[in-house]
Design a protein around this nucleic acid. Structure first.
Length: 423
RNA sequence: GGGGAGAUACUCAAGCGGCCAACGAGGACAGACUGUAAAUCUGUUGGUUCAUACCUUCGCAGGUUCGAAUCCUGCUCUCCCCA
């Protein structure tokens, strides 16, 4: 499998430096992608870069994931319109470890082209400022640096020397990896182009060697929204930040327009398989085959097969035609696993003796809805379900409605679910 | 420093003494139709109660008035023009 060809048909190539194809023809090259430790988890935007490394490795090359333990202390100005606050050392360390742990799930760390994870803090922290400006700064002109988009766009509103220096620091990483590990290619998102070619330039000037750059396009949604974002925020890879259920649902809700390109980027199905899948999907679009395949594949890769099983069951129950009987048939353990990630509230079981009027249940007891008025409106609009059954304002909850003698599933509309736990 | 304009609910934006919980648009939520899609149509969008009753809200603090988001005074902030 040819790496560049593979990325090409997947729509994962935005730009590349000439000559790269020839170099990568022979397996065993080293290439790297940097990951910023801005949080203790990556989000699904980074998944593009992860997949790029996965393809790189599958093509027989050696992928290196670089953790920006040092560059994270400087702050990459690319794509940012404002100067950011610096992260403190402890936070950064915690983030580096979190991201490192995640990355290990995706790559192979054995074999002749085993993956490697490095932290640029390990080599940058020992370099003195004087050494750096003499050994590195001397090779790159200010004019060259100023021409970069990441700098140009900031000239009017200001930019600290710290962020201005960023491209040199990242460039040095590339140089370092080139020298130490014979790393000849750096990849990244399209916003990284400027930083990457500063690196290739530095390598050329300092060692007279050729190094290469490849960037992936920014992922867009056809409706104009930002990929990987919802009302509640980013979709993260960490289950503590985004529950596997929400994660699965995000992919499942991909639009017909986007799903083909997502399949190409985020799954390892080959060209023929994806074409066939899309063909089937278009025949029976309401089955949502493409979305289901996408969501299952990505969820499995990120969260593992056990989580996927739970999430599939949860989705089927919440969106399928579940009844009180089917819900009640779940064992308590399954029930809890399945609905992990669905918001919950604890309510005292004593209240059930008298019965809980629906309005109280929705508002004061569970805080599912914020005001009685809202609760009345939603009930009038026919939006509220208890254990998948529509109810009216007269409804009073009693012990006979409990699932597994403890739980009640409350729904608002099609997509909002809530679980009341009675203790 | 001089002159002018403005601050209204999630956002934009009307209102300029009572009919204002406040037009309209967007967004959001829900219902119908569907495929947990898109488009479309409908409803809702401060709170309590459901009843054109009450409470809280129109930058902040006071004041005038039977009554103010609307008038007056002071304060804070934003924008524009001239130096």
């Amino acid at each position: 499998m040819d790496f560049i060809e593979e990325l090409r048909w997947r729509g994962m190539v935005h730009d590349l430096t000439p000559g790269i194809e020839k170099v990568l023809k022979n397996p065993g090259c080293s290439g790297y992608i940097g990951f910023d430790p801005t949080a203790d988890s990556l989000h699904i935007g980074s998944l593009v870069q992860i997949m790029t490394l996965v393809h790189f490795q599958r093509a027989g090359h050696k992928p290196i994931a670089l953790l920006g333990g040092a560059t994270g202390m400087v702050g990459d100005p690319s794509g940012k319109s404002q100067e950011r606050n610096l992260l403190d050392f402890d936070t950064l360390n915690k983030n580096v470890e979190g991201v490192r742990k995640q990355l290990t799930n995706f790559l192979q760390f054995s074999g002749s082209n085993s993956a490697e994870i490095v932290n640029n803090y390990d080599w940058l922290n020992t370099i003195s400022f004087l050494d750096f400006i003499r050994d590195v700064g001397k090779h790159i002109t200010i004019n060259y640096m100023l021409a970069k988009d990441s700098v140009k766009s900031r000239l009017e509103h200001g930019m600290s020397f710290t962020e201005f220096s960023y491209q040199l620091v990242q460039g040095y990483d590339f140089y370092h990896l080139n020298r130490q590990k014979n790393c000849v290619i750096q990849m990244g998102g399209s916003d990284q182009w400027g930083n990457i070619v500063t690196g290739t330039e530095l390598i050329r000037r300092k060692s007279g060697k050729e190094a290469y750059a490849l960037t992936t396009p920014l992922i867009k949604k056809t409706d104009g929204g930002k990929f990987g974002k919802t009302e509640e925020g980013n979709i993260w890879l960490s289950k503590d930040r985004t529950s596997p259920y929400k994660f699965y649902q995000y992919w499942l809700n991909a639009s017909d327009e986007d799903v083909a390109s997502y399949l190409k980027i985020f799954t390892l199905f080959n060209q023929k398989e994806i074409a066939e899948l899309i063909r089937q999907h278009e025949e029976v679009p309401h089955m949502r085959l493409a979305q289901k395949t996408l969501a299952a594949d990505v969820t499995k890769r990120v969260h593992g097969v056990d989580e996927l099983t739970n999430v599939l069951l949860a989705s089927e129950i919440l969106f399928g035609k579940a009844t009180f009987e089917t819900l009640n048939a779940l064992s308590e353990e399954t029930f809890l696993q399945v609905f992990e990630g669905v918001p919950q509230a604890q309510i005292s079981q004593d209240l059930l003796k008298k019965g809980i009027p629906i309005i109280d249940l929705l508002v004061s007891e569970s805080r599912f809805l914020t005001s009685n008025g809202e609760a009345r409106r939603e009930i009038k609009a026919n939006a509220i379900t208890i254990n998948k059954t529509r109810i009216d304002e007269q409804f009073v909850l009693t012990a006979k409605h409990l699932l597994n003698e403890r739980y009640v599933l409350i729904g608002k509309g099609k997509k909002n679910n809530f679980i009341a736990v009675f203790n």
